[in-house]
């Protein structure tokens, strides 16, 4: 078996150490898993931020609406890498506790800051996306619910949100795909995701060109899975005779 495999491997595959070398394969897979984990957690949190933010933007309190507006402006008008550095280096160095050995320890890990930073970044975009969806729900439909005695919260939960989600679906998909691709930024604070482990591998094995191809294909695969999931979701939400 071993010999057959050796015979099957062309020269270029030998330099592809993520295939030939167990240790590097392990590193690659752990990086892949980190990217997937980071993406899934951030997608879920950013959706929650988006829904909550869009709901608050419809609130009566002006102060609440204005603060959500500031939040969105902050995350939309600054580069995500700068945000990440801001959280990790500016806030992270303040938020410290004294560890068991008496030395100061960060309260939030670099992975933690990556999750917080990316979720808020994508969440801010989701707020805008959901808001435009919410605004597209006809006033008359909401009025009909009011006339039936629904409270504001019930209207939002049972009428506005399900309709706004359907309206927002394509814009939401674009933003979530962007979020997955933006996870590569956390390389900058040493979270061992795909790009980080790939850089480790190519600096040891000097196979930069091969690893670049591996990286690109890996992201093509990850995003393809996400797009497929989003497509299934959109299909499941489709209403006969509504929209198009």
């Amino acid at each position: 078996m071993e010999t057959v495999l050796d015979w099957l491997q062309p020269d270029w595959l030998l330099s592809l150490s993520v295939v030939s070398d167990d240790y590097n394969r392990g590193r690659y897979l752990s990086g892949l898993w980190m990217t997937v984990k980071l993406s899934v957690i951030c997608i879920v949190l950013s959706l929650i931020v988006g829904i909550a933010g869009a709901a608050i933007q419809g609130a009566k309190s002006r102060a609440l609406r204005v603060s959500v507006g500031f939040f969105v402006a902050f995350f939309r008008n600054t580069p995500p890498l700068v945000q990440l550095y801001f959280f990790y280096f500016a806030i992270g160095t303040v938020l410290r506790i004294t560890g068991e050995n008496g030395l100061p320890q960060p309260l939030v890990s670099n992975f933690g800051w990556a999750v917080i930073s990316l979720s808020l970044f994508a969440g801010a975009m989701n707020i805008e996306i959901f808001r435009s969806g919410v605004e597209a729900v006809p006033k008359a439909t909401i009025e009909a619910a009011e006339a039936l005695g629904y409270t504001r919260l019930q209207i939002y939960r049972y009428i506005v949100l399900p309709l706004a989600l359907r309206i927002s679906m394509s814009a939401l998909g674009t933003n979530l795909v962007n979020l997955v691709k933006t996870t590569t930024l956390v390389y900058a604070i040493a979270v061992p995701e795909l790009l980080y482990v790939a850089a480790q591998i190519w600096s040891e094995d000097l196979n930069v060109r091969e690893m670049m191809n591996v990286l690109l294909l890996s992201y093509v695969g990850i995003v393809a899975v996400l797009v497929w999931v989003l497509h299934r979701w959109e299909k499941a939400l489709r209403i006969p005779g509504y929209g198009g």
């Binding site: 439909t141 009909a144 049972y158 399900p162 309709l163 359907r166 209403i239």
Partner: peptide, 8 residues
């Protein structure tokens, strides 16, 4: 006038 049913 416009029925205003919940389309979903």
């Amino acid at each position: 006038q416009q029925y205003n049913l919940f389309p979903h």
